[in-house]
Amino acid sequence: MFFVLKSDITVLEALGYSILGLAIVFAALILLMVIIKIQSALMNKGRKSEAPTSVSAAPAPVAAPAPAKAVAPGSAGEVKLFDVPDKTAAMIMAIVADSLKKPLNELRFKSIKEVK
């Protein structure tokens, strides 16, 4: 065939294999993308359908919440921690407050997540 060198396959065959190989990589990862989207859609749906239930069931437990049970004076609520130990989170919040020259109780931290 065209352009046969020392190799046991021709350049044309190599080109064909390459196009097929790249197409398979794309196809596999596109299918994976679709699966991930379906998975996250299903989970979000599950979470949304759980939410109204918890709201409707909420009055009883929420009716008697322990107001400011463990909340420090001036606290803006609880910060969500993702893979961050409490001690590290406390240090991060203190450093941010110090850098901004603001008292900690005037700042609101929503979440702290470790970037890996």
């Binding site: 352009f3 060198l5 190799s7 396959i9 021709t10 350049v11 190599a14 080109l15 294999y17 390459s18 196009i19 190989g21 790249l22």
Partner: peptide
């Protein structure tokens, strides 16, 4: 795949 083709060449 580019390197694969070049290697065959």
């Amino acid at each position: 795949y580019c390197a694969f083709i070049l290697a065959v060449v």
